[in-house]
């Protein structure tokens, strides 16, 4: 399963990231960099979602909430406690992971479909708490003036082009972490759980512990995306932490390809880019996105990267059919 998957391969990824790293050197307008940074942030969230939906087969509808936890943790720690961004970011990731642990401890006591329903509720509750806890989060007013990333190793990361590299590094770390997880002994057990929880259990896999770890990893990645977002945007409101965000990123993931390594980045780049370039689409986003989501799961559930995979697999299969004698 790991070998056949759509993988640009380690070298392919190096080329992708090297090209992305060259972009600021072309001195593009701030608009292009802004789109690039946004794509990287939302792609990270899509990677987080993919660890659940793609690798473990679990639909989590609370991920925007964990994005929010990471974002508000960084926002509050830098703005109110005057922490450095470089300390606040890992702290935000850690807090999100702990939030994932708490969610999992309760949610994984239920079986199957109840998890999706449960996380839908948790997502709304997280947004509600963020919206109502005035003293901590600024409530409805939001959190204004989150300081940008500070200098590290003598480089000032607060400016647009330099912050681009912060987002790029975070995305690279995310892809590395996810790729390693997927190709590991642990990751194979997740795939087994996705394929059938009861079967995985009877095969001797400790399903509960694996799901718990996967959820923590997944929420940690969502928190990382949120933390980068906080420092980049500088303003936090509760609206970004709600189910609409989860829904949008879910669409990115489905377009790109659930369960693939390239899918989250591919889908986010495509869909975010499209939404930004077609202003008309922005106004009627959900009129289009809703049916698109339905059509995707009905006709192209494997997404773009999955389509590529399938074509690749067919070629490999055709080759082996010719060479293997299976009488």
């Amino acid at each position: 399963m790991n070998r056949a998957a759509f993988k640009p391969g380690p070298w392919g990824w190096l080329v992708i990231f090297a090209l992305a790293a060259l972009l600021p050197l072309l001195k593009p307008g701030g608009y292009v960099l802004d789109i690039g940074i946004n794509i990287m942030i939302w792609a990270m969230l899509a990677y987080g979602l993919n660890v659940m939906l793609g690798y473990s087969g679990l639909l989590s509808l609370a991920h925007a909430g964990f994005f929010g936890i990471g974002a508000y943790a960084v926002g509050i720690l830098t703005l109110k406690a005057h922490w450095s961004f470089w300390l606040a970011l890992p702290a935000g990731v850690l807090i999100s992971a702990l939030g994932g642990l708490l969610l999992g401890l309760v949610a994984f006591r239920t079986r199957g479909d109840a998890f999706a329903i449960f996380t839908l509720g948790v997502g709304v509750i997280l947004q509600l708490v963020i919206n109502k806890w005035d003293a901590l989060t600024g409530g409805n007013e939001g959190l204004n003036g989150v300081p940008p990333a500070t200098s590290l190793l003598g480089i000032d990361f607060s400016k647009g082009a330099n912050f681009y590299y912060v987002a790029l590094a975070a995305l690279a770390l995310t892809v590395l972490v996810v790729a390693r997880t997927r190709g590991s002994v642990f990751g194979r057990s997740l795939v087994a759980i996705r394929g059938g929880e009861d079967l995985a259990r009877s095969a001797g896999i400790d399903v509960y512990t694996h799901k718990l770890r996967a959820l923590m990893l997944s929420t940690a990645i969502a928190g990382l995306a949120g933390g980068v977002y906080a420092a980049y945007v500088g303003f936090l409101g509760s609206s970004v932490t709600g189910p609409v965000t989860t829904f949008t990123v879910l669409l990115y993931l489905l377009v790109g390809g659930v369960g693939t390594l390239a899918g989250p980045l591919l889908g986010t780049a495509l869909m975010y880019g499209l939404t930004q370039s077609l202003k008309g689409l922005q106004d009627y986003q959900y009129i289009v996105f809703g049916p698109l989501l339905v059509l995707l799961v009905m006709f192209v559930p494997q997404g773009l990267a999955g389509l590529w995979d399938r074509a690749q697999a067919r070629r490999v299969a055709a080759r082996t059919e010719r060479t293997v004698d299976h009488a």
């Binding site: 639909l59 996105f289 799961v297």
Partner: peptide, 28 residues
């Protein structure tokens, strides 16, 4: 149109389709 064709697909597919319908109805 949606749920009957998806009856044999993994459960998450019909759940995701249902979410798509929800957002569409709301936007409409």
């Amino acid at each position: 149109a949606v749920f009957y064709p998806l009856r044999n697909a993994p459960h998450v597919h019909s759940m995701i389709a249902a979410i798509g319908v929800l957002f569409f109805v709301e936007a409409a």
